[in-house]
């Protein structure tokens, strides 16, 4: 793995929690649907399985919870949705992300 590959993987990995919460902020998703949704962003989810332990951890941290919903296509699906704490944390993460983007943009401007 080249330096660039390694760096890009680390950046994406670091942002995965934020993106999962962002997707769930729109509406509840079941695991498979969430993985496919994230997979649409080019190069974001390298291994689809990465998302499941992360969802489990977010649940343990009470940022998301789950509920079973009947599916017309088969067995009931487990939907993940943001909790009030998750919404609150996401707001703070948005704030931190804006700060990071602003700071990096400033550094890039200074560097050119």
């Amino acid at each position: 793995m080249t330096f660039l590959d390694n760096w890009a993987t680390q950046v994406r990995k670091g942002l995965l929690e934020f993106c999962v919460l962002r997707v769930l902020a729109r509406r509840p998703h079941y695991g498979y649907e969430l993985v496919k949704q994230l997979g649409r962003v080019q190069g974001f989810v390298i291994s689809e399985g990465t998302v499941y332990p992360l969802l489990s951890r977010l649940k343990r941290e009470a940022l998301v919870d789950t509920r079973l919903e009947e599916s017309p296509e088969g067995p009931a699906r487990k939907y993940y949705r943001l909790t009030a704490r998750g919404k609150q944390q996401l707001k703070l993460m948005d704030q931190v992300w804006s700060e990071i983007v602003g700071s990096v943009a400033e550094l890039r401007r200074e560097g050119t």
Partner: peptide
């Protein structure tokens, strides 16, 4: 390293996937 219930949950999610 995760608790047993979490591992079970991850495996259930992977099965569902």
């Amino acid at each position: 390293d995760a608790s047993a219930s979490d591992v079970d949950e991850v495996i259930a999610d992977i099965r569902e996937h």
